[in-house]
Design a protein around this nucleic acid. Structure first.
Length: 270
DNA sequence: ATAATAACCTGAGGGC
DNA sequence: TGCCCTCAGGTTATTA
């Protein structure tokens, strides 16, 4: 899926097309996503989109009647198209606007979700316990250091925990650890304060650069305007197992860590 | 309470 | 071509 930068890119791309527009109809062809799409969403009509925000990997569409919460899962995608474009196999939901535009949710694996709440979306159970945004002031070395002390797990798994910091997924966890010269296997409790400082900075830098580039292109991520993201050209380790480390030329290792592929340089990352 | 693992799905790609 | 296997941007539920 889309990790934070891809979700951010999605928000930026759909914003000019749907901001302040009137949503006239929501067509749900396949309600079975990660959770069933609530019926209230299909009943929405003539609702203005007031704001488009991102929280962690969630997209929040604020409307005059409540908030639509969208998560793209592993393979989800949102695009804005002209109306009347025929739907294909995995085009599960269409959001139709009064100006003829159509925002289409496509998701082959259906790990994503589309939810709706009339209450504060940040209090919604799935969002309530999320950790700080990586660019917020509360995500800093002291904060991360405290979390490394609380649990004893591999540092990679710690930074992928959405309750520790929101938005870091498998690609950017690998990349950030390379940038910080830290082994993904390091026990969190053994991190020094200055290593936490480095890691915080690495996470921020890698995400910032990825956002600047418009996200990463892998199998099926295209930003909603149809352009691919370009970050893949800048990946140091992800997907480069058994290739040469771009720092020292040693062969990059690949291991499984918490069921996720983990690529790193045994020589550069300690 | 914490940590590992199973589960939810479909499609792509490799080996034979 | 086709079958079988493994793997893929995530996160929750279940088990130990």
């Amino acid at each position: 899926m889309p990790e934070l930068p891809e979700v951010e890119a999605t928000c930026q791309a759909i914003r000019p097309h749907i901001m302040k527009r009137k949503l006239t109809q929501v067509i749900v062809r396949q309600p079975k996503l990660r959770w069933a799409i609530p019926k209230a969403l299909s009943e929405i009509k003539n609702t203005k989109i007031i704001d488009i925000q991102r929280r962690a990997k969630y997209i929040l569409l604020t409307t005059s009647k409540g908030t639509i919460i969208i998560h793209l899962g592993m393979s989800g995608r949102l695009r804005v198209l002209k109306n009347n474009i025929p739907h294909q196999k995995h085009d599960h939901v269409d959001f139709i606007f009064n100006d003829g535009a159509l925002m289409r949710y496509t998701d082959p694996r259906r790990f994503g979700s589309i939810l709706f709440t009339t209450a504060d979306p940040l209090r919604y159970p799935l969002l309530a316990k999320l950790g700080p945004e990586p660019f917020s002031e509360s995500f800093n070395a002291k904060y991360l250091f405290e979390h490394t002390q609380r649990k004893n797990i591999a540092i990679k798994q710690l930074i992928m925990d959405q309750q520790v910091v929101a938005g870091v997924g498998n690609i950017y966890a690998n990349e950030a650890l390379f940038l910080a010269k830290l082994s993904p296997l390091r026990s969190s409790r053994l991190l020094m304060f200055d290593e936490c400082q480095r890691l915080v900075e690495a996470i921020q830098e890698i995400l910032k650069e990825a956002i600047r580039q418009g996200g990463t292109t892998l199998r099926d991520f295209l930003s909603p305007d149809g352009k691919p993201g370009y970050f893949v050209q800048k990946l140091f380790v992800y997907g480069r197992e058994n290739k040469n480390c771009l720092g020292c030329h040693a062969l990059l290792s690949i291991i499984q860590l918490g069921q996720r592929s983990t690529v790193f340089c045994k020589s550069c990352q300690k």
